[in-house]
Simulated scan of single mutants.
Amino acid sequence: MAFIHETGSGPDHHAEEDENYFISMTDMMVGILFIFIIMLMVFALNFKQQTDVSVEQIERLEQARRQAEIVADKLDALKEEVRLELQQIDKSDQVRSALLQEIRTRLAAQGLDVEIDLANGVLRLTEDAVRFPTSSPILNDLASANVRKIALVLREVLPSFASCAVKEASCSRDPKATSVETVFIEGHTDVTGADEANWQLSTQRAVNTYRLMTEAQPLLRSLTNRAARQIVSVSGYSSTRPVIDEKNSVAYDTNRRIDLRFVMEVDDGKRLREVLELTNKMEGQLKNLRSAIDAADVQ
């Protein structure tokens, strides 16, 4: 279980324990290429201003042209890697949406209504499903019964989306198939009470929900991701993520809740899209470099 007392920058926040190797390597490559392009442009522009073109200068110009072609090839390869990664992320989002909809359908068949946020991968256990008294982490009888229903549905659905169902066993699931990295049981409070107490309270609500789920369905603790780590974990957010950002009894009841957040092995593509945008800009700079070299060549 991972206890998280922050809103999104912690080392254990939403499957970000380990740095994304692909993105870090991509950033490094982009940085190197960007600096290299700038150097070539400076060279080409300086060269263009010269009127006395020697054999040595012509050779330098030709070398610059060849280097520009190499940069162009590397950019194309980098952009293709990013496109493939984004395709995988899109596929991951589709799989997660199917998972959430399947869970909601099965819970509805048991008379339990929940909300889903497909964009953020969240299954929201409304106050009608799991309610907490004010300033209390205790699940009442109705909430406990509903948590057991949720645990049963997770037991039925999650193994098909997990990398491995039993850590010690050989997994027959395709290792390349899209799978769940983490399911965070997230505890929340309303805005009343001391903030320091609410951090502890929100985490305790998540912990109590986790304990009841895994006691009712012990297999949930055997579900692991590709790193052979347990999928089901917990986090607490105090009152920092309200569903209704108001100060009234309805908002308080709604915000004292449990969310289940599903994080896939391939996570958010925002950073990759930023890298792709940067490569597009670099491509424009490369075209300017080629134009400058060509102009210098004809003088």
Rank of each mutant, 00 (worst) to 15 (best):
A165Q: 15
L118R: 12
D117Y: 06
D128A: 05
S163K: 04
E127K: 05
L123A: 04
P137F: 01
E127P: 07
D90M: 14
I70C: 04
H188S: 10
V183Q: 01
T192C: 13
R83G: 05
D113S: 09
R124S: 09
G111Y: 03
G193M: 08
R131N: 03
A108I: 13
D190T: 05
I89M: 09
D90C: 11
Q94Y: 08
D195E: 11
R106H: 07
F132T: 00
A64F: 14
G187Q: 00
D195W: 11
E115P: 01
L201Q: 03
A109H: 09
D117A: 03
V122N: 01
P159A: 05
N198T: 09
V191W: 14
S135E: 08
I70A: 14
P133A: 08
I150L: 11
D90L: 09
W199C: 10
P133W: 07
P137A: 12
E80H: 10
E102Y: 07
R66T: 13
A197L: 06
S163C: 07
K91S: 12
Q110A: 13
R66N: 11
L201D: 03
D141G: 14
V180K: 03
T105E: 13
G193T: 03
L100S: 08
E62K: 11
S172N: 01
S144E: 15
R104N: 06
T192Q: 14
L78K: 12
D73L: 13
